[in-house]
């Protein structure tokens, strides 16, 4: 049996946790696309799930080599979305973490922070450009297009703020791990 759940997460760790709760109920993720999770029924707690953001898209040779290495280690890549990959390992094979030392955890969080920051700046710049166009048009008293630009610009800036908010817990984690990294590895 296949189940489709539509859901939106801003925090990949909460998303991971939810996938593992689903797995505990016997629902194993087999495919992901934008906000759409496809689950297949499996015995309860068959798999442990982890989500990772890669340096490159999954079709990049470096990503292919990495995913093959994971597969040699009993980790299956069930789905990918842009640079995100959804990984799982049989729970019977013990604890499953991709990164186990502070240094590599910090690197992974930084990768995510950079992604959210880039999206945020893109929204801000495009949003501001739209508002500017709208306002300029208004003062040139040309047309009614200006209002559309201003509204669109406003929405993009709001979206930028959403990504600013999404990055906040990641930055907090980076700071905490870096502090920890000063006294231990």
């Amino acid at each position: 049996m296949i189940h489709v759940v539509r859901k939106l997460f801003w925090d990949f760790e909460k998303e991971e946790q939810w996938l593992n709760e689903m797995s505990a109920k016997g629902m194993a993720l087999t495919h992901y696309s934008w906000c759409k999770y496809v689950f297949t029924e499996t015995p309860k707690n068959e798999y442990t799930y982890r989500i990772e953001l890669l340096d490159n898209v999954p079709t990049h040779p470096e990503s292919i080599a990495y995913i093959r290495f994971l597969e040699e280690n009993g980790v299956e890549c069930v789905s990918s979305y842009v640079r995100w990959i959804f990984l799982r390992k049989k729970s019977s094979e013990g604890a499953f973490d991709i990164y186990t030392d502070l240094e590599s955890k910090i690197k992974h969080f930084k990768r995510i922070n950079t992604l959210w920051n880039s999206v945020m700046w893109l929204e801000f710049i495009v949003g501001l450009a739209n508002i500017l166009i709208g306002v300029t048009n208004y003062f040139n008293s040309s047309s009614s297009i200006s209002l559309v630009n201003v509204i669109l610009g406003g929405l993009l800036i709001l979206l930028g703020l959403v990504f600013l908010r999404a990055g906040a817990p990641i930055r907090k984690k980076i700071r905490k791990l870096q502090q920890e990294n000063l006294i231990r590895e």
Partner: peptide
Amino acid sequence: MHGYAIMQNVKDLSHGRVDLGAGTLYG
């Protein structure tokens, strides 16, 4: 040895204390 054997070996050497994640090992 290959990657998976390294993980197992490290786990054995440390009596289960050090359980390397595949991403950490790969890096």
